[in-house]
Design a protein around this nucleic acid. Structure first.
Lengths: 332, 332
DNA sequence: CATCCTCATGGAAACGATTCCATCATGATT
DNA sequence: AATCATGATGGAATCGTTTCCATGAGGATG
């Protein structure tokens, strides 16, 4: 039974124990400045003996900044963002930087709140999958935050480095693959905010001389319910379509479920191709053909970028890869 | 182009602008102490005009603690832990508390490092899925951290509140279900650290008069590779077994994959039941029968517990639920 | 031998909040 | 009218670091 809350051992205690000034202790421990071997030894010994750990609070206040990285993602439950976060954590932890995480639910308002709280905590580096638009991020830049966007850039903030996948090439690959199988009426299930991919979709369809039917481009919010509603609506009302491109794994999941529910067989009745390779794509029946994105890599690279934040850094575009499994077939 | 790094507005600036002392500003803004309506008004106006946000750094140093909670999980890529984290975030964010996250990879050493870094940051509340044993956590308690364990308790630290699932009941339900289908030789694919479930398994088998074959209890580490090796080994060498109980979604995934690879049909050749309901369980073929665990709830409750950390708090045991889909059939 | 440079060292001033305590005004009580 | 209680207020101490600056010792150079 301990008597009471004992005081944390501070740099002062170490200084006394080693019989030197606090300045010397600080210098020795942080490795900056000079100190004679003899005192260095004494200080190190005292610190070890007292099991001293410098308080990040004191240091941060003095330095007027908090180490660490803020990470803002829409939904940690989504395998893509989980892998992204994993990459960020891998890099940050190997650099010894703590990570503060927040989920926005793709809601600009929540995002703004979280940005505010990061500023309050004096976090100076942020990796974000942005939900809001450019002005949402005004306070962040005014506060001098180092920001790196991931997965998607923000319109009007092209100066901020972003780590994204090569949407155009990914979409084109998918569309070309479907076209080669004879499909002409292909639908695109997109999430709000994937306008880049939508544009790429129109472009790729046009380039192949396929008709672009705006009604075959449907958008959903980033929830399972919304995704399911969109997928079911599409499959129900448009029995003329022969292929579906899902813009993300949530959309793909919804498409599989909706197809089963409506008794639409994949790939016999419609072919399905999904953005993002997830572990279950292989477990699914039929196994899903996907456009893989290096999510974990994306996080890692973003973390590298935000940590190096010194020289003028440009964004990164990561390649996608078509992985053919069993969810696409020739046009019926 | 901004001229230079402008200084952050501090409480002093607000005090000057409102023509009061800093103490008054602090009192008004934190709501403690008294202030006349007139000055309160002036202070609030000045704070709003200057867009003042108190620095958490200053506050924390003075209070000698950091708000917020630390969250330590083995792997954010695992749907179970992602949902757990989501629950923690939901609770923490609604309480306005920042969350510092770290992944241990189920490695006690990494866990110890992360605990150290939390102490350094003066984080005072931690939710952890523990990897190490009791002594690993010594420094944490010595530093006065409020700890809540999630998913599994730590042997020798029974005084620490833990939020867990009802393993005994979950395992028993699964085993009884399989037994009712006629299965007698059922295997248990466990992850290291699931000894609680292993014990429950032996117990449940024994209670039903089924033979407990220790060789049908295999353990894997918390990686996909290790899980696959374990599952494949089991299915390959023991063609006499008729049912498999997987201790987690990684194990279940591995079992499905291994079965397919070895041309073992589910549920015709072996029945499969998995701990943890994940979105893909329904997408899988056959759809997986599972023992659902309220992962997100678990995180939420753990966060509640660690935030209330005041009165003597006991742990929580959450119920499981059998969800029958299509991966179990009568004994062949 | 005088001067200068370098290095080791410790005192003290930040950093930005909270909070104790003393002061002062005002109105109530004796 | 004298005393007291109450509430508003600001100065200053404090939290645990880092870092600037002054000091002094000692060796090298003239």
């Amino acid at each position: 039974m301990r008597m009471s809350e004992q005081r944390r051992t501070t740099i002062k205690d170490v200084a006394e124990a080693a019989d030197v000034g606090v300045a010397t202790v600080s210098r020795v421990l942080s490795g900056t400045g000079s100190a004679s071997p003899a005192t260095r030894e004494r200080v190190l010994a005292a610190a070890a003996r007292l099991d001293y750990r410098p308080s990040a609070l004191g240091r941060n206040l003095r330095r007027r900044r908090t180490g660490g990285i803020g990470l803002l993602i829409p939904d940690i439950t989504d395998s893509f963002y989980a892998r992204l976060a994993d990459g960020v954590l891998a890099c940050a932890q190997s650099a010894g930087e703590p990570v503060m995480i927040g989920t926005t639910g793709d809601d600009p308002e929540r995002e703004a709140e979280l940005i505010g709280s990061l500023i309050e905590e004096s976090v100076e580096r942020v990796i974000a999958v942005p939900s809001g638009d450019g002005e949402m991020w005004g306070p962040a830049f005014r506060a001098g935050l180092g920001v790196v966007f991931a997965e998607r850039p923000v319109r009007g903030r092209e100066d901020v480095p972003a780590v994204v996948t090569d949407d155009r090439s990914g979409v084109r690959t998918a569309v070309e693959y479907l076209a080669a199988l004879g499909h002409r009426r292909v639908a695109f299930l997109a999430r709000h905010g994937q306008e880049q991919r939508v544009r790429a979709f129109r472009e790729a369809m046009g380039a192949l001389g396929l008709p672009v039917d705006e009604e075959l481009i449907v958008r959903a919010r980033a929830t399972r319910d919304s995704a399911y509603a969109a997928a079911a609506g599409l499959l129900h009302h448009r029995s003329d379509l022969t292929a579906v491109l899902a813009g993300g794994n949530l959309l793909g999941e919804a498409a599989v479920l909706a197809a089963r529910e409506l008794d639409v067989r994949v790939p016999r009745d419609v072919s399905l191709i999904m953005f993002d390779d997830v572990p279950w794509a292989e477990l699914c029946w039929p196994p899903l053909t996907v456009i893989a994105q290096p999510a974990q890599d994306m996080g890692y690279r973003a973390a590298e970028l935000v940590l190096r934040q010194g020289r003028r850094t440009r964004g990164v575009v990561l390649p996608t890869e078509l992985i053919v499994r069993g969810s696409c077939g020739p046009r019926r």
